[in-house]
Design a protein around this nucleic acid. Sequence first.
DNA 1: GCCAACGTTGGC
DNA 2: GCCAACGTTGGC
Length: 153
Amino acid sequence: MQYWLMKSEPDEVSIDDALAAPQQTVAWTGVRNYQARNFMRDAMRIGDGVLFYHSSCAEPGIAGLAEVASTPYPDPTQFDPASKYHDPKAKPEAPRWLLVDVRAVQKSPMIPLALLRTHAELAEMLILQKGSRLSITPVTPAQWNFITGHLMK
DNA sequence: GCCAACGTTGGC
DNA sequence: GCCAACGTTGGC
């Protein structure tokens, strides 16, 4: 069992959108960074815990809890010329981009980025490092426990 | 809208 | 393989 933080722009898919989706599950489309892709392809397992993070919005921060809900499979948007995530170099017989399904578990009290920064226990979180912009990052059990057990109370 | 930081591309 | 140019991310 591992833990992750996954960024989503709430204008595209918010925690509320995910909770309202069938099975409360959304396909994590649009990742176009190899490191983030590799986490989904190689490291994630069904049932892994996910911190659902809102980025590029008025109040960036952790907005809910979710879990990995599928094994990896090709991101269909890479083959869709109408999608902004279209990748002309991807072919169905050789997909470049894989994703997993994510099931929203619950909305949480909003935990703003600025608040995360105030806790020494979270100083090592990858998302808090200078220049970090990876959209999917691993979270340690200690960080997970601190956030879910302390900040979400 | 600004801009720092980072990733990717492509010429050489 | 180097690296400059360019595009993107994402907080502020």
